[in-house]
Each structure stands twice: as structure tokens, then as C-alpha cells.
Write a protein that binds this DNA or RNA. Structure first.
Lengths: 236, 236
DNA sequence: TCAAAAGTGTTTTTTTTACACCCATGC
DNA sequence: GCATGGGTGTAAAAAAAACACTTTTGA
């Protein structure tokens, strides 16, 4: 498609996306099964080549939707890091991949139809160590980043629908950080962060569980920016 | 040099380096004066094209040394972010730049000789807003990252020679964070972080100032890893 | 009535901050 | 001596952690 002649080396540039969600109280990542060599049949992160006039994060969003069929609305996405070691792709040409971190609150995968057939959610702990290319390294980097983002920004709400309870938020922290948090202290702490969440006038309808109905909250500011200032300071 | 024909778009990949040092108790950055269009005569970050078989951080280190003549030993370098918006380089081809963050403890610039003639240290506050390409954006990103690294890792020692006093370390924090830190509290806090610094049996010889001689410290672990766990928690 | 989840109260512990004060040294 | 920077002491304030306890609901 493009022909290039130059005095400098040229590269392919791809994007890969680590899309996280909390499903069944566990941190899960969206992976696709590779249909072609190299690594045919192995799991890999969704991703692909960046268009000639396409911005990097646009490419990441596009590839994610194309390859997995997840919906792009409300999807939080930020650049993670770039992986460019010579030989990271076993094919002859040099491929540099700009990895992105993304979070979704509705972790469905529309089965059938497009490429999405090969996409599925997998618990991070189970899939770690099994991925194609250098995607295990990318996944590790992404886990570190997501932990840090939860500590320093209001990102946790991005794992949840627009309205949620404090207990749901707590389960996000517990899933990502892999520890138990005292419900009472968490309650107080989050209620004091008015830049993070604001109460609505609703309580949970009789959904599912027993126990007292919980107050419903919303993120304090839309759009929920990844650039927000530190919110949560310690792991409790 | 390389000829490429492909069904996918191809890119040039460059590296840019934001090299910080603390000079005269101010955070300074190494910039080069551009000799060619575009942006001839303007200041820019040192950087250049990645070699066909070269790793990204190797390229960053190489370009830094080639363009500025700083010594590479003891240089701490980590990937910052990748900038690839179409049109960020006004020339016709698409150029994606992988920016790196670096810190040096000996901010000399060997004058004369190679390309280094055009390199100089400049206070970050003064140079911000004046750089070529999208280098102002890169610099802003780098400042945020360096602040964060100082808070969460033992990176501050990388600004100093192998042996240093607590007051010197304090001045690094003050320069980067742009605030004053209580010397007494800082002393106690740092002395309690035994993973960060360890005392030597020396005190400062009669160097420069009046006042009591200070205890000399060393980084606790060599090599001083950027991956170390959080050290300093609040800004005091 | 009992278990489970929401939410509040209270106490203890730890960390942070402010700032007074002593020590050592050059001028 | 005295100003300057190094370093310690101490107490108040704030934050974090632990955990008992009350409330509200479904079964």
C-alpha cells in the first residue's frame, strides 16, 4: 500500500490494547486467539497496524473494536508503553508496538459475526505467562500501571456503570490489588473524597442480595479524566 | 539505506531524550540548537533516528551522547511515552518518536568538537514553551514523570554523585518539586529509609560552606533501580 | 429470627507537621 | 562571638487501621 525509500530505517508501527474489566470479582483481560502464524492458536492481546494518517490512540480504539467487538463508548484508554526490541516479532521486518491500557465497564463480547469470534475474557492470573509475542511483558506492565492508576486517580469508577455503590467500588480495588479492604474504613474514606464520587438520591432497588440497601453514587465529574489528581493514598 | 515495500503503512521511528539535572539548585534540561529546517535556530530536545537493528533505549542513549557529548556512565534512562500524532513533524513522512527520560549527576557539556557545540543546559522554567516540534509537550510529560519518580522511587540519588549528604538530596527534591522542605523532618525521614540511603563513615571535608560537617551517604543498593518500591510518600 | 450487607462510632496507632533547640564550624 | 548549616527533641495534628456495633433487608 505504501512505498517508501529513505536514507533512514523504516518500521511498521502497531498498537496493542490491554483491556481490563472486573468480572466475577476478578481482574480479567480481553484476549484474542490468533488464527495465523506466527503463534497460531495462541492467545494474544488485540491489536494491529496503525493507519498512514491515524493517531496512535485512535488506532488502538479502532483495533480493539474491530478485533473484539466491544463497544467503544465510555471506554477509557491511555498509552502504556512502547515495545520495540529487535526480533520481538519473529517476522523479518522491524515492528514497534505502542501498547495501550484500557478499562471497560461492560465486559461483553458479542459472539459471532466479525473477527470477534476469537475474543474472550480471561482472568489475568490465568492468562499471564501464556501469551504470544512479548505480550506477557506488556500485560505485566499494564497490571503495574492499573494498580498505580487506582491508587492515584479516580480510575476505579471506569470499571463500573455510571451509577454504582461504594461496595462495588471496593470490589474493584480488591480485585485489582488482590487484597481485602475494611468495608467500614473504605466507606468513610470514599465518602470524604467528594472530587471522586457524589451521592445520588437513589438507593439500590431490590437487586440480588440480602442486606440493607446501599446508597447509589456517581462519578463526581464527567468525563472522568485520567489526568485527575491523586485520590486514594494508601492501600488500607 | 533501507528499501521497503509493504501492504501496511511504514513509519520513521525516532527517539528524543529529556535529560534532567539539578544545576544551581534548579531543575535544568539539556537542549540542542537546531541547525537545519524545520525549526532551524530553535531549541529542541536531543534525539534522532533509531537504527535498523537497534533497541529503543540504546538508540536514546546513543543519540544523547552523539548530539550532546554528555557521558553515558551512570546515566539513568527510562522510556517516557511515544508521540505519533500525524503532522507532528512538518516534513512529509510520518515520524513516531519514543521519548525517554534521563537523569545525570554530572551535567557538563564538553564544548567544541562534535555536534555537542550546540548543546546547553537550560532551566526548565525558562525553556518551557519555546521548543521545536511537539517538544514542549514532551517536556511537560517528562516533568510530571520526574516528580512522580522522585516521590515513589529512590531516583533522587541519580541527580547526585555516588556520595552525597542529606542536604544535597533535599535540594534535589526542592528543585524538582519547587517547594521548601523542612530540613529537620527531611533528615529524619530519609535516615529511616534504609533501603534508600546508607551512611558511610565519612563526613564532608571542609568543602565550601560554614556550619557543621555533614554525614556522607551512599545509595543503599547498586545499581539504583528505577523499579524500586515507593520510598517517599508525601511532599512535607 | 437469622444471616448478610450497609453504614456509624470509637479507640489505638502511626505518620506528618511545626518548630524549638543544641552541635559544629568558618569568619 | 555569631551567623550558618547539620542534626535532634518534642508535642500537636492529622491520617490510617482495627474493630465493635447498629441498621436494614431477604430468606
Amino acid at each position: 500500500m505504501a512505498r517508501f525509500t529513505s536514507e533512514f530505517p523504516v518500521f511498521y508501527v502497531t498498537v496493542d490494547v490491554v483491556l481490563f474489566a472486573v468480572v466475577d470479582d476478578r481482574l480479567q483481560v480481553l484476549v484474542v486467539e490468533r488464527g495465523e502464524e506466527p503463534f497460531a492458536g495462541r492467545s494474544a492481546l488485540p491489536g494491529g497496524f496503525v493507519g498512514a494518517q491515524e493517531d496512535l490512540d485512535d488506532a488502538a480504539r479502532r483495533e480493539l473494536v474491530e478485533e473484539t467487538g466491544v463497544s467503544a463508548d465510555g471506554l477509557v484508554l491511555e498509552q502504556l508503553a512502547t515495545f520495540g526490541t529487535p526480533g520481538r516479532d519473529p517476522r523479518p521486518h522491524r515492528v514497534v508496538s505502542v501498547a495501550h491500557l484500557a478499562v471497560t465497564s461492560h465486559p461483553e463480547v458479542p459472539q459471532g459475526g466479525t473477527d470477534a469470534a476469537a475474543a474472550q475474557w480471561a482472568p489475568v492470573d490465568e492468562v499471564a505467562g501464556t501469551l504470544a509475542f512479548d505480550h506477557d511483558t506488556i500485560l505485566t506492565t499494564a497490571r503495574e500501571r492499573i494498580s498505580s492508576r487506582l491508587e492515584h486517580t479516580p480510575l476505579a469508577a471506569s470499571f463500573l456503570p455510571p451509577e454504582f455503590t461504594i461496595a462495588q467500588l471496593r470490589k474493584v480495588y480488591e480485585a485489582v490489588w488482590h487484597l481485602e479492604i475494611d468495608p467500614g474504613n473504605f466507606q468513610r474514606k470514599l465518602r470524604s473524597c467528594t472530587d471522586f464520587i457524589t451521592p445520588t438520591d437513589k438507593t439500590t432497588a431490590a437487586l440480588g442480595g440480602r442486606g440493607r440497601r446501599a446508597q447509589v453514587f456517581r462519578p463526581a465529574s464527567d468525563p472522568l479524566s485520567l489526568l485527575a489528581s491523586p485520590i486514594i493514598r494508601s492501600a488500607m
